[in-house]
Design a protein around this nucleic acid. Structure first.
Lengths: 404, 404
DNA sequence: CATTCTTAGATCGGTGGCTAAAGTTAGTCA
DNA sequence: TGACTAACTTTAGCCACCGATCTAAGAATG
């Protein structure tokens, strides 16, 4: 592919200013000084540079407050794009997102299956090229590619603890291989964390200082962001909420624990319980079966509704544990399994947090469903690249592998 | 009091360098360049400034590795001190700590009782002066005072959600009042978080990128640090682990939830269970009763041992939830209730994490008892001030109220 | 309508942290 | 004793940022 976009800036504060502009949506230079703590002089030069780079536009004037009216600034959403790839056994989802986190192109293709990693990587590179060509976006404006995969990852070295079906991917250097194949910076992240970044980029983020996504795909995980930074923990495997215990005498889980959320309330567990209860399910795969289960639950009372309600009760406990430990002000339910079941889960989580979130007297806690629940991981992959290229933070540095 | 120590530096990186020196214990300038990423030139000038300020000493030479041998640097532990005050209903604990986090003076006095806050504040100021005088430490070397109190706090405005016995303190501006009374910068923090900072300062911290204290006093809480920063969440009330649910059908808790850890395994719950089981307890207060209970448990098998073992089992689940959500590499048990019961709790927590910590394949997780469990909160208060005065980070900024 | 006030923003000189590159110091090794 | 090496130190210069000052553009006043 091409040489990529021109280097945006090499400044430290440009990124912070850009992030504030994006978070605010529309903001004047004066308000930027207040938001960043920088002086007017600095903001003036930084903004000029951002405008010169085509990232920021002057989009109007504010009402006068007694003197010269302020000039309003906003991001040019089409200034840059990023590709998000959600790599899963069942299917690969591609998304082309702009600076506002909006989807401008999407494509769903067959999954990795049993193909060898290098074959899949070559396919992905080709499919990315096709997607970009179809949407007509200038390839020079694409800042990179974010690959998202379920389960914990280890650094840039590949995946570990992968689900058995993707065993061949263990220790395969996905970012390096894809970077070489596409000529773009590539980042790798797990689904829940990527979804959190996607949520951050798609929303004006003054709303939230510290939030988490509750991501339900085939498993359950959480992605955590605090003050615009991904919270990564000791090895980048935070949010493994599927294996916290909510019932000390609960059933054993494959992880070695007992009464884990995933074993009690995960899609696989719910589907198994539904089958035992005689609910009619297609039986093609957990994702499809769970979708069928939620449709049955939405249709009215019965065993399907009971099973989903029970799952929601446990998921609500997970949300409560997250909120109490992390002092969240927002919980976003997302991922394919919540895409159609939002109305069954959101009220349960909200009710539990109203009842037992410890800091509710200091601040309320929002519980919402993501706007792009079904494609949250892919959108997150794209957002991850935007975040690292345009608003890098010291602490969340995870060096993207740059080809060449 | 006096004008306080001379301004240490107003540089940005001095703090980072100082922090690395402290964490390493003894380190050369070359190794500082590797650890900080700064050039030798920068390290040279920064170190010279730290030496001029009396914070750092040249304490020897390393073996030559083929050229000029490196000069070894270390903190002068007696260059600065800080006072920690653990303010509790039952007693006030004072600690004078040096830069190494070591205790150089301690004092325990009767608690706040039902006295009015301003009376107690005046008493604290007087007692701090007495302690400092008795230890013979130069008052100019004291950088400030950290006040630690149980329960969630709201900003610098005082405490909220205070235990009923300290209701009068709600919204009382402790930092401002004590700052005015002592002339020192004053910071306020909850016990678990302060204990985490204390642990950070008392240990060489390369060992741990992301750890939490599990603090058990009369309640149970956690303090979280990641990459040398306190993790504060949306409102500074992280780690409210006492009210996460580990038994969906467990007993109701005063917080509104069900099956909360604190209701199942907190000292008060254990003491109540022991009394029901006929264990002989003094009955003066939860702290004393719990100490008696652990003594009985240590003496051998019986109802006391069973009750403590049950508590340990639940505490281990809390540790597991923390570790899985935060991806910790270290858990420190601390607080007065663990001071004597360490040998009963540490193995249980360690075993549970060995069994079910999700990322154990990426990295092991240390479980240890704090060296100063009994005075962890007071030591933490002192460390908090050292941290904010000597190694401030952007993200953990909590402006200390400076008198005058 | 001219004057004055207020606020937004640009420009300019200066400060300070940082770097690269060259110099100095203090060891080892033949 | 003289290379060689590695640990600092010094120096010149870059760049982000700031304070001060200047210009632009509207509001309020008479």
């Amino acid at each position: 592919m091409s040489s990529g976009p021109a280097p945006v800036t090499h400044a430290t504060s440009s990124a912070a200013v850009l992030d504030v502009i994006r978070g605010a949506g529309i903001i004047s230079r004066v308000d930027l000084t207040r938001a960043t703590g920088l002086t007017g002089a600095t903001i003036s030069t930084v903004v000029r540079r951002l405008i010169d780079n085509g990232l920021v536009l002057e989009t109007g004037r504010a009402e006068s407050t007694g003197g010269k009216p302020a000039v309003l600034l906003s991001l040019d959403p089409d200034a840059r794009y990023a590709v998000g790839v959600h790599l899963d056994h069942a299917g690969i989802t591609y998304v082309l997102a702009n600076l506002g986190g909006a989807i401008v192109g999407r494509w769903r293709r067959p999954g990795a299956g049993t193909d060898a990693p290098d074959v899949v990587v070559a396919r992905i590179a080709a499919e990315v090229t096709t997607l970009v060509a179809q949407t007509g976006v200038d390839p020079d404006r694409i800042v990179g590619l974010g690959v998202v995969s379920p389960g914990p990852l280890t650094g840039s070295a590949g995946m570990s603890l992968t689900p058995p079906v993707m065993q061949a991917w263990t220790d395969f250097p996905v970012p390096e291989a894809l970077g070489a194949a596409t000529g773009m910076p590539v980042m790798l992240e797990n689904d829940a964390t990527a979804a959190a970044v996607g949520e951050y980029w798609a929303t004006s983020h003054e709303a939230s200082a510290c939030f988490a996504t509750l991501y339900m795909g085939t498993g359950i995980g959480a992605g955590i962001m605090a003050n615009g930074d991904i919270f990564r923990g000791a090895s980048g495997n935070t949010g493994e909420i599927g294996h916290i215990c909510v019932d000390i005498d609960g059933p054993a889980c494959w992880c070695g624990g007992q009464g884990c959320i995933e074993a009690l309330a995960g899609p696989a567990a719910s589907v198994a319980a539904a089958r035992d209860a005689g609910v009619d399910l297609p039986g093609i795969g957990t994702a499809e079966d769970f979708a069928a289960l939620t449709r049955a639950a939405l249709a009215g009372p019965g065993p399907a509704a009971d099973i989903v309600a029970r799952s929601a009760r446990y998921v609500a406990l997970a949300a409560q544990a997250l909120a109490n430990i992390l002092d969240l002000d927002r919980v976003v339910l997302t991922g394919p399994s919540f895409a159609y079941a939002a109305s069954l889960y959101v009220p349960a989580v909200r009710a539990q947090l109203d009842r037992a979130f410890f800091s509710r007297s200091s601040h309320p806690i929002d519980v919402v469903i993501s706007a792009h629940a079904a494609e949250a991981a892919a959108v997150g992959g794209a957002a991850l690249v935007l975040q690292s290229e345009l608003a890098p933070r010291a602490s969340s540095a995870r060096v993207p592998s740059r080809a060449r």
